[in-house]
Amino acid sequence: MTVLPKDIPGDSLKVTVGTANGKPGDTVTVPVTFADVAKMKNVGTCNFYLGYDASLLEVVSVDAGPIVKNAAVNFSSSASNGTISFLFLDNTITDELITADGVFANIKFKLKSVTAKTTTPVTFKDGGAFGDGTMSKIASVTKTNGSVTIDP
Rank of each mutant, 00 (worst) to 15 (best):
N145R: 08
A79F: 15
N42S: 12
M40L: 08
V32A: 10
V3L: 12
K23L: 10
V43P: 01
T92R: 02
K39M: 08
L50Q: 08
S12W: 07
N106P: 01
L56F: 09
G127N: 01
A72D: 14
T29Q: 06
V37S: 12
N91P: 02
T94S: 04
D7I: 10
T33Y: 12
P24R: 10
S147E: 08
V122L: 04
V59G: 06
K23F: 09
N70F: 06
T142M: 09
S136E: 00
L97F: 00
G18C: 14
A72R: 14
L57G: 10
S12D: 12
G22P: 09
G44H: 02
C46D: 03
L89T: 00
G82T: 15
I150D: 14
F86R: 00
A100F: 04
T2I: 11
A105R: 01
N47M: 01
D101N: 09
D95M: 01
T142W: 15
D53F: 10
G102M: 15
A38C: 14
F75Y: 05
A129K: 01
V28N: 07
A100I: 06
D36Q: 11
D53C: 06
L4A: 07
A20V: 11
F86Y: 04
N47H: 02
L13C: 10
K41P: 10
T92Y: 00
F124Y: 02
K41N: 10
V62N: 08
S147R: 06
A79L: 14
K137A: 01
K125R: 09
K143R: 06
A129N: 00
I67D: 12
T144W: 01
S77N: 15
K110E: 04
T123W: 12
K69R: 10
N145W: 03
V103S: 06
C46V: 00
M1L: 10
T27H: 12
G128P: 01
V32G: 08
V148I: 05
G127V: 03
N70I: 04
I93H: 02
A116E: 07
T2R: 08
K14H: 14
K112Y: 03
V28W: 07
I93P: 02
T119Q: 10
V114H: 08
N81K: 15
D36P: 13
A64F: 07
P66I: 11
S147Y: 04
V17H: 11
I138E: 01
L87C: 00
V141F: 02
G131F: 00
G133H: 04
F88H: 00
F48M: 07
S85D: 01
N47F: 01
L87A: 00
V73P: 11
K112G: 02
T2S: 14
S147W: 09
N106R: 05
V30H: 12
V60Q: 10
F88D: 01
V59N: 09
T33M: 12
V122D: 01
M40G: 09
P31A: 11
G51N: 14
S12L: 12
F48L: 07
V32H: 09
D126E: 14
A72Q: 14
N106G: 03
P5F: 06
V17Y: 07
N21I: 12
G10D: 07
G102S: 04
A100W: 07
K39I: 09
S113V: 06
D53I: 14
D95Y: 06
T123F: 12
T119W: 04
S12Y: 14
T99Y: 12
K125P: 01
N106H: 08
D95K: 02
S55G: 13
I93C: 02
P9N: 08
A72N: 15
G18F: 12
V37H: 11
L56P: 07
T149C: 15
E96N: 00
D36Y: 09
I107M: 11
D26T: 12
G51H: 14
A20F: 12
T118Q: 05
I93K: 00
I150T: 14
A71F: 08
D63W: 11
T123A: 08
T92H: 02
V17I: 10
G146P: 00
P9C: 13
T118E: 03
F130T: 01
F130P: 02
F104H: 02
F124E: 02
T120R: 14
G18M: 12
D11T: 11
M1R: 14
F130I: 04
T118I: 05
T99K: 14
F86E: 02
I107T: 03
A79W: 15
A54N: 12
I84R: 06
K23G: 09
F34P: 02
S136T: 03
Y49A: 01
K137R: 04
C46W: 05
M135I: 14
D151E: 15
A116R: 09
V148Y: 05
I67R: 13
S113Q: 05
F130Q: 01
A79Y: 15
T92K: 05
V59C: 08
C46S: 03
V62I: 13
N42R: 12
N91L: 04
V73Q: 05
G102H: 01
G25F: 13
T45D: 00
L50T: 11
K143W: 04
S12C: 14
N21D: 11
L50Y: 06
K6A: 10
D95C: 02
I150W: 07
G127I: 00
S147I: 07
G102L: 15
I84Q: 05
S85E: 01
G44N: 00
F124M: 01
A72F: 13
A54L: 09
D26M: 09
K112Q: 06
D101G: 07
G82N: 15
P9D: 14
D53Q: 13
M1I: 11
G65L: 09
L57E: 10
F34Y: 09
L13F: 06
D7S: 11
G18L: 13
T29P: 12
T134H: 05
I107W: 00
K6S: 13
K110Q: 03
D95E: 05
D151Y: 15
L89Y: 00
V62S: 05
P121T: 06
T115S: 07
G133N: 04
A64D: 14
N106L: 06
E96T: 01
D63T: 14
F48S: 06
K23Q: 13
S80M: 15
V60L: 08
T123P: 07
N106M: 04
A129C: 01
A20C: 13
M40A: 08
V15E: 07
K117D: 05
V141S: 02
G44T: 01
S140Q: 07
G25I: 13
G51I: 12
V60W: 12
I67M: 09
V30M: 14
K6M: 14
K41H: 09
G82A: 15
L111D: 00
D11E: 09
V30F: 12
A139F: 14
I84T: 05
T33G: 13
N21H: 12
I93E: 02
A79H: 15
V15Q: 05
A105Y: 01
N106W: 01
F48H: 09
G22T: 09
N145E: 05
G44I: 13
F75N: 01
A71D: 12
I93V: 05
E58T: 09
T29G: 14
P121Y: 05
N47D: 03
K143Q: 02
